[in-house]
Write a protein that binds this DNA or RNA. Structure first.
Length: 778
DNA sequence: CAGTGAGCGAGCTTCCGCTTGACTT
């Protein structure tokens, strides 16, 4: 029996700490929170001062009974949950649930898992901070009130199973706002002028000097008249300025910056980054991966220093402590860093290795010297014009941290020229242009959010926590408020004017613009829900709502405000809004009238229905048999932006192609894309080859016959006893097909040897398949 | 599982933050 029981939040942490403390200490983990508000009956008693009703979560019952047992037999219990609001609440719940006696219970905290820090914590126990616990209760209750009162309004007024919340609804709003900003953006063309000069070198070779004009032109005429002036001009170097500059390394990783860099440099979605980091953490390779702190322990800094001196030399070292500047940071942990700096690489999957390497480099670089750069700017005058050409170059004098790591940016413009060394130049030197080019460019619309850039924005606004960034992104996609998609760009033309050998040439070129990869787009449901929330609950989806309640939580934590008073002040006006929305709002369908169909004069509109967004041609008239025509919107189309032409096209499907073998051939678009239907069978059209609007009967027959052939090929075995049982070759290998259901065959089975009886057994052992709801998981 | 776009109205859905599993696709 151990004398001391230490309780921490994470089991991996428990293992490490047990090693440090040695015998006499049993270290256990609570696996995070052990209790939460009851989900039935709201969990908060509105009429009794917002009394929370906590219950032990189903998956924590075992943990709790184990902890109870250990606590009973220990002389002293040390509660070492994190030193933040949530950690303090976990400590309090543990006290309550385990019935711990304050006399032999100590609350301790540390921010890093080092022997020094832990021993120091043991020497400085403190009492539970009930004010901090109350701040957490206020946070928890507020989130429950918001989520569980608004969501049911959405079920009634928009669609069942939807959700709203303090965090997720703002995340959606950011994406909706950005999309509308992009829709309304008017791209303006302008002309950028570049020159390439020829510079003779001493060795007889000629090198090129690229320069950009310090002025842009609004029209092709203005650009052209400037080129005309250049035609008879002298170009002279007016001055050369060389200035030293510095680049500093970025701070060590927090959860949010790790997600951003892994997205930019490695292309990982935030969920993947977190699960890889979890594995690295559990195997002891990195420190805790859910943190908002950029702090490194002294031990870590020492180890980094040693590694830098060993690999790069003394002058590459520069010890830095980074201040966390993010709103509402609670800093219960260290930054995300490698546990051992001498491990440049680790074992594991390629993805784990790449993420580890990123963390290793970033952390090491953070303790390295600035890079020293010499930046040279050359101004070149044009004798017949007032504008200047500017050439600039960079020379790296000392690489410093750059020898290890360089942070990436979200900038997608792609016009960051590689700035290299300039040729040897002197003031008053005359230059000969090889050519001067005016290029039509377009003002840039705002960039759509990626998962990672949305996380950055949320963090900036102080909304959400390191443990919730990735789950929030998942939630808003699961609710189908937002989709992550690639979109193809559109072709656009641009004009180039080029002056060479005294002649001005003109050429119209084309490029693809606006292509998107893995960006977040709002769906029609997302738009409708967002507009509904903005209309009836503006204060809640205000970008500053979290910041303002956080202020009040801080006051509670400081003992200056009573938590249920704060909640009451919030709830009274909030609940009035709920009632108002329930009684005064129309059902929200996001309806938009597109106008009159030019062919029939009937009304064309777009709205949300039971099965998603659709367009409608004509209206239902009472007493008349005539029904309106409906068609679902396709992927990438939106109620808000669909045009009359696009809508009319949708009504052209399904299309009757004619007959084949005496049965009708119909082409249409279904949930899985364009298809041909014939005699009850469906055949998908080939992506990028067939267009449902133009596909011919001949091509359709070709597809039907191709599918027949494939179906025959996929049959591995049939049985005379029952033709409905067949063994087929599918996408994931052989399987058994019986009536409408499919059954798995265990890996490694000799398929040819399966008998009719074997198959029947497999089918029976799986039983009748329950209908699973794929969308929601769980 | 592919077309639909109401109706009866039972019983269900839902929040944010702490933590890890046990899972198929």
């Amino acid at each position: 029996m151990e004398e001391n029981l230490v309780i921490v939040e994470s089991p991996a942490k428990a293992k490490t700490i047990e090693k440090i403390l040695g015998k006499n200490f049993l270290v256990k983990s609570s696996f995070g929170h052990i209790r939460d508000l009851d989900k039935k009956d709201f969990g908060v008693d509105i009429n009794n001062n917002y009394q929370p009703n906590y219950i032990i979560s189903e998956d924590k019952k075992k943990v709790v009974s184990d902890l109870k047992k250990c606590a009973k037999s220990a002389k002293t219990v040390w509660i070492a949950s994190d030193e933040d609001r949530e950690g303090e609440a976990i400590a309090w719940h543990l006290m309550e649930v385990l019935h711990l006696d304050p006399k032999n219970t100590n609350r301790i905290v540390f921010h890093e898992i080092t022997k020094e820090a832990i021993l120091k914590a043991i020497e400085n126990p403190r009492l539970l901070n009930k004010d901090l616990v109350d701040a957490q209760q206020a946070r928890r209750v507020l989130d429950r009130l918001v989520g569980f009162e608004i969501s049911p309004v959405l079920w009634k007024k928009v669609k069942p199973s939807l959700s709203a919340g303090r965090v997720q609804s703002v995340a959606v709003r950011l994406i909706v706002d950005r999309e509308r900003e992009i829709t309304n953006f008017l791209s303006v063309p302008f002309f950028r002028v570049n020159a390439v000069f020829l510079v003779p070198e001493k060795n007889g070779k000629v090198s090129l000097l690229k320069a950009e004009l310090n002025n842009r032109f609004d029209t092709a005429e203005a650009a052209k008249s400037f080129l005309l002036k250049c035609k008879g001009s002298d170009f002279t170097i007016a001055d050369i300025v060389t200035r030293p500059a510095k680049k500093s390394p970025a701070a060590p990783f927090t959860t949010s910056t790790l997600q951003q860099e892994a997205s930019r440099k490695l292309g990982f979605p935030v969920g993947l980054t977190m699960s890889l980091a979890q594995r690295l953490y559990e195997s002891g390779k990195i420190t805790y991966m859910r943190t908002d702190s950029t702090n490194l322990s002294n031990e870590a800094i020492g180890a980094a220093k040693k590694k830098i001196i060993g690999s790069y030399g003394e002058k590459y070292v520069k010890i830095r402590q980074y201040k966390t500047k993010v709103k509402g940071a609670q800093e219960a942990h260290e930054a995300i860093r490698p546990t051992y700096f001498d491990q440049e690489e680790v074992e594991g999957t390629p993805q784990e290795q790449r993420l580890y390497s990123l963390i290793w480099k970033r952390t090491l670089a953070s303790q390295m010297a600035d890079a020293e750069i010499e930046r040279t700017t050359v101004n070149i005058t044009v004798s017949k014009a007032t504008e200047l050409f500017v050439a600039s170059g960079e020379v790296l004098r000392f690489d410093g941290f750059l020898s290890v790591y360089m942070e990436s940016t979200d900038d997608e413009s792609g016009n960051e020229d590689e700035k290299g060394m300039l040729p040897v130049l002197s003031v008053n030197q005359k230059l000969l242009p090889d050519h001067i080019q005016a290029l039509e460019r377009f003002s840039q619309k705002a960039a759509r959010y990626t998962e990672a850039s949305l996380v950055r924005k949320l963090e900036e606004l102080g909304i959400g926590r390191p443990s919730t960034y990735a789950p929030t992104i998942t939630t808003i996609q699961q609710r189908e408020y937002v989709v992550k998609e690639d979109r193809e760009g559109v072709e656009r033309t641009f004009l180039t004017l080029i002056l060479r050998n005294g002649m001005i040439g003109e050429e119209v070129k084309t490029e693809i613009a606006g292509a998107e990869k893995s960006k977040l787009f709002p769906t029609d449901i997302g738009l409708v829900v967002n507009d509904f929330l903005v209309k009836y609950f503006e204060p809640i989806v205000d970008f500053n709502f979290t910041a303002s309640v956080e202020k009040q939580f801080d006051e509670i934590a400081e003992g200056q405000l009573v938590w249920n008073r704060m909640i009451d002040d919030f709830y009274q006006p909030f609940h009035v809004k709920i009632e108002d929305a329930l009684t005064n709002s129309e059902r929200a369908r996001g309806e938009r009238i597109l106008g009159q169909d030019p062919a029939t004069g009937k009304l064309v509109s777009a709205k949300i229905g039971r099965f998603g967004p659709f367009v409608q041609l004509g209206e239902a008239v009472e007493g008349s048999d005539e029904k309106p025509q409906f068609a679902s919107l396709q992927k990438g189309q939106s109620i808000e932006t669909i045009s009359m032409e696009e809508a009319i096209k949708l009504f052209e499907l399904p299309r009757d192609l004619g007959e084949f073998e005496g049965k009708k051939v119909i082409v249409g678009i279904g949930r899985f894309g364009p298809y041909v239907r014939h005699d009850g069978n469906f055949v998908s059209l080939k992506k990028d080859i067939d267009d449902p609007l133009t596909v011919t009967i001949e091509r359709a027959i070709e597809l039907i016959e191709e599918k027949r052939e494939n179906t025959i090929k996929s049959v591995i075995k049939t049985f005379g006893e029952d033709p409905e049982i067949r063994i087929l070759e599918g996408r994931w290998g052989p399987y058994i097909s019986f009536k409408k259901d499919n059954y798995k065959i265990k890996k490694g089975t000799d398929v040819q040897a399966l008998s009719f009886a074997d198959c029947k057994m497999i089918i029976e052992s799986e039983g009748v398949k329950p209908k699973t709801n794929k969308k929601r998981g769980k």
